[in-house]
Each structure stands twice: as structure tokens, then as C-alpha cells.
Simulated assay, not measured.
Amino acid sequence: MAEKMRNASGAEEVSYQIFTLANIVSFVRLLMVPLYLILLLNGCNLAATLVFATAAATDFLDGQIARRTHTVSRLGQLLDPAIDRILMITGVLGVFLVGRIPLWVIVLVVVRDAYLLIGGGVLLSRFHIRVPVVYPGKFATTFLFVGFAGLLLNWPLVPGLGLCDVSWLPGFNGDAVSWGIWFIYAGLVLSLGVTIYYSVAAARALRAALAERSREGCAHDAA
């Protein structure tokens, strides 16, 4: 029987199993990433959009399966957000490579996701701190995924607002643009807010962990 432990709330058991149904779904989603890039770079817009949309639409599936079948695993807790980040970075990189999104969006998404991946990894490995995913973060990811799918499909195009005359703000200038850009903007704003929340929550958890270590050290010295 796989070794199990309880999470901080004590309500859900977390196993060390690898080949659970939820984890298999996560692995399949991961395999869709290179397939999406190959299709896109070979001009197969519709096929690339379908693969990306499938990988993005199943974002909630692995977590729901794990919870409903009571097979939440340590690997799954790591895979789910990591694959979301990988898919996000690959998605934005793909639409940039085909010239449908400005560079600053790439930089913002990659830097934000790298910050969450590296920061979360350090907190988990060194301090055993894991900041739970919040639903606004899922909504931000969904907006971005929908936006990327729209940019991949590149149809239909809608008129720009004509508020400025700069090429690096598609949608706000006068050029026709994919409807997906507005989902991108909404997702970026929401994701930045969620990143601030994660940072504050992580800082509080880190302070608590350091204080606990300090108390344990004092107790050990006193003994």
C-alpha cells in the first residue's frame, strides 16, 4: 500500500503513487505541448488550435479526477501547476513565433511563470511550503488559454479601437486583430493580481516557518 500523509487541513490524504488516472491525464496534456508547436510551425493553424484547446480545456480535469477518486498524489500536486505553466509559456511563445503577439507579452508571461515555478520550487524543497492554488488564478489561466487559442486560429479579426498609433498594443491601435487579444489582456491583469496574492501568502508562510525553526532551535539548545 502506498505511503500516505494528510495535508495541512487534515481532510485529504495525499499519496506517493505515480500511475494514477489523474497523473496519466497530466502526462497526456504534457505530450500535447510539443505536438502543438510542431503543428503551428508547419502552418497547421486549425490542428494546432485544437491540440492547444484540448490541452487547455482539460486543465481542471486531472485535479477533479484526483479529488473525486480520492487519489490526490504528491506528484499530481506538482504536475498540475507545472504543466499549466509549461503550456502557458509554450502557447505564448508559439503565437509570438508566428508574429501574432508583441514581445512584451512574452516577457511578462515568461517572467511571471518563471517566478512562480522557481519560487514555488524553492519554498517546497527548502521549507516544505506549498501555497494552494486559488480559483482566480485558474480563471486567469483560462482567459489566457482562450486568448491564445483565438490568436492561433487567427479568425475572425475585429477592428482595433484606434486609441493609439503604436504597433506593440494590438487592439488599442487601429489595425484589425484577433478577438483573442482581449482575453489575453484580461488574463494578464488578473494573473498579475493573483501573483501578488501568492507572493504575500508565501511571505507569510515563510515567516511562520522560520519562526517555527527558530523556536525549535531554542528548545533544542535549552535541552
Rank of each mutant, 00 (worst) to 15 (best):
T142C: 13
I118Q: 07
V177M: 09
D80G: 09
P156W: 07
A22D: 07
L103K: 01
S15P: 01
A48T: 08
K4N: 11
V95R: 02
L117K: 05
L35N: 00
G171T: 03
V177L: 07
L35P: 02
E212A: 15
G150V: 00
D221G: 13
R130N: 10
C164D: 09
L152V: 06
F127S: 12
R67I: 06
T20N: 05
L79V: 07
A211E: 02
I129M: 12
I106Q: 02
T54C: 10
E3T: 09
L41R: 01
L124F: 11
R130G: 11
N7W: 15
G119Q: 05
G10P: 01
R126F: 13
L21G: 09
A57Q: 05
P102G: 05
L31Y: 10
V158C: 08
F60S: 05
L169P: 00
G76Q: 06
A66L: 09
Y36M: 02
P34E: 04
A66R: 00
A208E: 10
S191V: 04
A140V: 08
L35S: 06
G162S: 08
H70L: 10
A57M: 11
N23G: 05
A47T: 01
V134S: 15
D84E: 07
G171W: 03
C44P: 11
Q64K: 14
L30I: 08
R130A: 14
V95Q: 04
A202V: 00
A8D: 02
R204I: 00
A211D: 12
Y197G: 08
V98E: 09
T195F: 14
D59T: 04
I83V: 11
H220P: 04
P170W: 05
F148L: 12
P159K: 02
R204D: 14
T69Q: 11
A208L: 03
R213M: 15
L78D: 00
H220K: 15
E3W: 15
G217V: 10
R85V: 00
I196L: 07
R85D: 07
G94T: 08
I38Y: 14
A201I: 00
T195A: 10
A149K: 07
A11E: 04
V166P: 00
V110H: 05
A57Y: 14
S167L: 15
L108E: 09
V51L: 00
T49Y: 13
L161V: 03
N154T: 02
Y36L: 02
I106E: 03
V158N: 06
T69Y: 15
A140P: 02
F183T: 04
F127H: 14
L93Q: 06
V200N: 12
G99W: 09
N42R: 12
L103C: 03
A114R: 10
H128E: 04
V33S: 03
L87V: 03
A66K: 00
R126G: 15
A82R: 06
C218T: 03
V177N: 07
S125N: 13
G162Y: 02
D165A: 15
G99Q: 00
W179N: 00
L192D: 11
L123M: 13
G63P: 08
I86V: 01
I89P: 09
L144A: 06
F27W: 12
E12S: 14
L169M: 07
